[in-house]
């Protein structure tokens, strides 16, 4: 909670005295917390009982109406806009902010938004296929949750707060420990899904492909050269370490 509020008690109570639960109620978020089950089962086998500290939006999204690209699309010139894009500008802005938190610029390597990753996310969540529609609900719920959480903590929307403030929220949902907390398990799962999507989209760009070190997709004249000397030296070291030796028929 921030303590910089100068609002009168008439409009909003003195916030530092509020528990998180009371703030959630005040903001009307708790009533929307229906998506959090009473007991959340986690992959590690642990469970968290709900005590009303969590909020998670229950979105009812309109069905996407676009069609898929069908069973015989042109593979040489792939469709550039296979279905209508569905993200609103504000949502796209949040995705761009998140994309650059997930993949920031590193020296000469561009950030995710610099190589148009948010467009790929938009295409992905707008696609009329089951997997993508499930992701759409996750991603848009996360966008709403971040907005709510930012208001709760900083009295302003996620895009309006400082980068430090944003990271203080992301730090609570970006690490595995978050899966085991009641407040953050849902946004953490959604963030994890978006993280994979953003990272994939980034590595799929020419710049990202170079960054991860993929060196294929180039024609080779003559025989396949096989591993480099350096790669073989590494392998031989590993074999020694594991007590193994090579022999191929």
């Amino acid at each position: 909670m921030t303590s910089n509020s100068d609002n009168s008690m008439d409009e909003k109570p003195y916030k530092t005295t509020l528990t998180r639960r009371e703030s959630l109620k005040w903001l009307g978020l708790l009533s929307a917390a229906v998506a959090v089950p009473a007991v959340i089962s986690l992959s590690g086998g642990k469970t968290v009982a709900e005590t009303g500290k969590a909020h998670w939006p229950k979105l009812s999204l309109p069905q996407v109406t676009g069609k898929g690209y069908g069973k015989d699309p042109n593979l040489i010139v792939p469709p550039e806009a296979p279905w209508p894009l569905t993200l609103e500008q504000q949502e796209l802005n949040t995705i761009a902010v998140l994309s650059d938190i997930i993949v920031p610029r590193e020296g000469n390597v561009p950030s995710a938004s610099e190589v148009k990753v948010p467009d790929v996310v938009n295409e992905w969540v707008s696609a009329p296929y089951a997997r993508q529609q499930a992701d759409r609900l996750e991603v848009l719920s996360l966008v709403v949750w971040l907005e709510d959480e930012a208001k709760l903590r900083y009295d302003a929307g996620f895009r309006a707060i400082t980068n430090m403030e944003r990271l203080s929220i992301i730090d609570d949902i970006a690490y595995k420990k978050a899966y085991y907390t009641e407040e953050y398990s849902k946004p953490a799962e959604a963030f994890s899904r978006l993280r994979s999507l953003v990272l994939s989209a980034f590595f799929c760009t020419s710049e990202g492909t170079k960054d991860i070190g993929y060196m294929g997709n180039v024609p080779i004249a003559g025989d396949y050269p096989g591993p480099t000397k350096e790669a073989m030296q590494h392998l031989n070291g590993l074999l020694d370490q594991l007590g193994l030796s090579l022999s191929i028929a």
Binding site: P78, V120, A201
Partner: peptide, 8 residues
Amino acid sequence: RNGEAPLM
């Protein structure tokens, strides 16, 4: 490249 195709 996968990046040129819809849905990577």
